[in-house]
Computed example of a mutant assay.
Amino acid sequence: MPPSNSPAAKTERLMNLVMTLLYTRRPLSRARIRETVEQYRLAPTDEAFERMFERDKEELRELGIPLATEEISAGWEDEPGYRIHARDYALPQIRFDADELAVLGLAARAWSHATLAAPAATALRKLRASGVEPDDEAFAFVEARLGTSEPAFGPLFDAVLAQAPVRFGYARPGEEAATRHVQPWGLTSQSGHWYLTGLDTDRGEPRVFRLSRISGKVTRAGKPGSYAVPADHDPVAMIRGRREGGRLDLVRLRVQSGSGNALRHRGIETAGDDGWDKVELPYSDPGDIAHELASYGASLIVEEPPAVRDAVITVLRAGADAHEEVGP
């Protein structure tokens, strides 16, 4: 069977080629590369392999990957060998401040909910290989195991990028689900939940939709690029405005040093001298913020109020019970 030409197959082929040339101790001939990289081995003819390999070489160089051409040995006459030197491929020393680490962690958290999970993991591995540790506790410890990913995230993410209208079923607490027609503007995570902001075309007003309340499939209801997102759109402010009139309380936390950068960014931080810092964070609903706090696992302690601490314990126990049911 000839190799697939899909974008995913091409990406996998390029990654296999890079890994092969990066970890070899000596230059590899074309024949050896064809034997090693599975997608090349499946090429139906020598000509098909040659065309594929030439295109891949050019693409790697356009991406800035230092593909070196070297002499293999005297016995190979004029045939060149190929390799990638680790010293040229390695990233330089990279330093990020707390806000930038929080953004990296949030981006990986978002991508872990959709079809971008594999590219996100690859990007994080490259960062860690260079000595950078993104603030990823918020998705690595508990969240993925509690089943918090929303089925609506993927199609809504694509619709936001394409500026394509959608329709979906949506149910407010205590109400029956009703079909909503929306021009998606943005997706934002707040207090452990994902929200869609956009224009509700049935009501002619901007609205906020919590993804966990979307029922059924999200389907396209118009052509891509058929509307424009307002230039002054601020999804975070829009979500907060939705809660105007509601009372905000403070949760007091102890956060392990080097962890919880996203929480520190949103709250008031007081440095400690025992490896733990104090952070005060505003919240409106114990249940909403409990999922976010629980995702930090042992890196965080809720000091008060008791309602939030109890909600976090409930979430953690639910996660532990789910693991016990699945078994090893």
Rank of each mutant, 00 (worst) to 15 (best):
A31F: 09
L196P: 07
R242E: 09
A237P: 02
S73D: 13
I72P: 08
H193Q: 13
A320L: 15
K126Q: 12
E50K: 15
A107L: 14
G216R: 13
V182A: 10
D273I: 03
H291L: 13
L42S: 11
T45C: 04
V236D: 14
A68W: 00
G245V: 07
D78R: 15
D232N: 12
R41V: 08
F139P: 04
L281V: 06
Y23L: 12
L196W: 04
Q39E: 15
V103Q: 10
S215P: 00
L281K: 01
A320M: 09
E133I: 01
A120D: 11
V312M: 14
A171Y: 07
R13Y: 05
P134Y: 14
E175K: 15
D200M: 12
L196A: 06
A177C: 15
S212I: 00
E50A: 13
L196M: 14
S257R: 15
V132Y: 05
A307Y: 06
M1S: 10
D136P: 01
A140P: 02
I94E: 05
K217E: 14
R128Y: 05
P3E: 12
I84D: 00
A162Y: 06
A48Y: 07
E62A: 13
T24N: 03
H265G: 03
Q93C: 06
R252S: 11
R87K: 12
D46H: 08
E280Q: 12
P282Q: 08
E143H: 09
F153W: 08
R247M: 10
H85V: 02
L253S: 05
F157H: 08
E150K: 14
P305I: 05
H113D: 03
V37N: 08
P7I: 10
E175P: 01
G174R: 11
R109F: 07
P305S: 05
P206M: 11
T115I: 00
R180Q: 04
A159G: 04
T69C: 03
R203D: 02
A231C: 03
D200N: 07
G204Q: 05
R264S: 06
I94G: 00
W111F: 10
G192H: 07
I239H: 05
L101N: 01
P66C: 11
R34C: 06
L14D: 02
A107C: 13
Y283V: 05
G198N: 04
A231P: 02
I72T: 00
L91F: 06
V166M: 09
R254K: 14
D310Y: 02
T45Y: 11
L293H: 04
V251T: 09
P235G: 11
I33C: 06
P184A: 03
A221R: 09
D234N: 15
G169M: 14
D136W: 08
Y283K: 11
M52T: 07
S112M: 09
Y195Q: 07
H323V: 06
F168Q: 13
K10R: 15
N16M: 07
R30C: 00
L14Y: 08
A144C: 00
P155W: 14
W276G: 12
A129S: 05
